[in-house]
Design a protein around this nucleic acid. Sequence first.
DNA 1: ACATTATATTCTTTTTATAGAATATAGATT
DNA 2: AATCTATATTCTATAAAAAGAATATAATGT
Lengths: 106, 106
Amino acid sequence: MLIDRKLAALGDPMRRRTVELLGERPLRVGEIAAALELPQPATSKHLKVLRDAHMVEESHPDYDARVRIYALRADGLDDLKHWLQAAEAMWSRQLAAFKRHAERNP
Amino acid sequence: MLIDRKLAALGDPMRRRTVELLGERPLRVGEIAAALELPQPATSKHLKVLRDAHMVEESHPDYDARVRIYALRADGLDDLKHWLQAAEAMWSRQLAAFKRHAERNP
DNA sequence: ACATTATATTCTTTTTATAGAATATAGATT
DNA sequence: AATCTATATTCTATAAAAAGAATATAATGT
């Protein structure tokens, strides 16, 4: 499921940093690799994970067709937000039930 | 960091299902293992991961001291919510900037 | 054409995570 | 006391993830 891939993708510190870097502006692979202090191939692989999780997208600038620019994907957080909203609802229901239970058994 | 542990914890399908099960009501280890169709030791290990990520907590009922009941932890989603809020802010700033850029270069 | 640059893919090695089996611990039941 | 039950811990094997090196691809610059 996509939400699994997103959570797993963000579970890795390097990828979380990548997302945070892209939060400032779109970047080339090389710039990301430099910022992460990681070899380019490793960086490319992390980017693939983020791409497969639909968190980022690639684009080819017209001034140089070799370059790939990665940017946050507009709908990248949607599933995560939905899951978190549902989780929050569960959470508060469960906690309310627990509270009622505790009040009945003081 | 705790947020890393939370994201990584939720990245595993079994643990995500565990959280969703506990969203209905607190459960014993044995009940969770049965629901996941996973051996008890494996289940205990997943629960440890969730505990270490401060997502769930253990309690000992007084009617049987062998039993451990796991429940969602009240503050379990807080860091996640904060991170997501910050991420959303980044996201929309970045997308707005991209939009401005696109409008300048039609 | 040749060298260089940007990125991706493949392969290998190392690390980490997971499952599964066996055992440990502690408490309940008879 | 002996046995059974609930859960945790340890150990081993396996699978998956990560880094690193080497190579591939494709475009640019000379």
